[in-house]
């Protein structure tokens, strides 16, 4: 069995009396693409926020690479290679697309006040290298000719691609994608899926996707974790889950079988 890069153990989190996550545990193996699915209100997005460190759970542990990171703020987790995107695109609107990428790379010389003032030569060189790197990434994502546009001026689909490109620029080891395909045209869904598989294969990035579109899940995810009512309900391949009565029930109603099976 491959080494698990991420483990969540017994997470509990309540908001004002609503138990959003109720004793949920699962683990993610390194180098995989895992989907996190479940009906609305299952606690998927909340779980992403717990893993990335936006929310602190009431109980339970988040373990990254065998290290307990539950008490670490989100930026420290990100420094360990745990990155995320957001459900709604959150680009830096008044920065250009290229700058959106440049800003996220960690460990730049000119990020400290001293470096910014007194090591200008060094960070100017570094920025030049980063620009080349970022342009490469943008070209892969078909955003090259938009590199000098303000990110806020892009279309919804383009912004989704910028989000992914930006995450790639930050060199993630584990990337949490919170509904990356929401509000995206079918053709673009195809592209995004293609990029995710490529990044996984070529750079070895581990992915966790919160996703509603089961076609996408079937195509690109090797494993699926199902959440319902704040709990982990089942996990396995999508084929295995199709015959899982609990999963079918969780999706409720008569059309459920078709939806899971489609």
């Amino acid at each position: 069995m491959a080494k698990s890069i991420l483990e969540v153990k017994g997470i509990k989190l309540a908001f004002g009396g609503v138990q959003a996550i109720d004793d949920c545990s699962f683990h993610i193996e390194e180098g995989t693409i895992t989907a996190l699915i479940g009906p609305n209100g299952a606690g998927k997005s909340t779980m992403v926020n717990v893993i990335s460190g936006t929310y602190r759970p009431d109980e339970g542990h988040v373990i990254l690479d065998g290290k307990d990171v539950t008490r670490m703020p989100n930026y420290v987790r990100a420094q360990h290679g745990l990155l995320r995107t957001f459900q709604i695109s959150r680009e830096f609107a008044n920065l250009t697309v290229l700058e959106n990428l440049l800003v996220v790379r960690q460990g730049q010389v000119g990020e400290s006040l001293f470096g910014a003032l007194f090591r200008a030569k060094r960070w100017q060189e570094q920025t030049k290298e980063l620009v080349a790197e970022a342009n490469d990434i943008l070209n892969t994502f078909g955003l090259y000719r938009l590199r000098n546009e303000y990110a806020g001026n892009l279309s919804g689909g383009q912004k989704r691609l910028v989000e992914l490109a930006r995450a790639v620029m930050a060199k993630p080891r584990l990337l949490l994608l919170d509904e990356p395909m929401a509000g995206v045209t079918p053709a673009l869904i195809e592209r995004l899926g293609h990029h995710i598989v490529e990044l996984n294969r070529e750079l070895g990035v581990t992915f966790v996707l919160v996703e509603h579109n089961l076609d996408v899940v079937e195509k690109i995810c090797s494993r699926v974790v199902v959440m319902a009512l704040g709990k982990q309900l089942a996990d396995g391949t999508l084929a295995e889950l199709r015959s899982n009565q609990a999963v079918i029930d969780a999706y409720l109603g008569g059309g459920a079988r078709e939806r899971v099976g489609s």
Partner: peptide, 18 residues
């Protein structure tokens, strides 16, 4: 650049390890 990114969206900057 980090400052200007924070002006746009502080949480996102945090989520990238700054």
């Amino acid at each position: 650049r980090s400052m200007r990114a924070i002006r746009e969206d502080q949480d996102v900057v945090d989520s990238f390890g700054k």
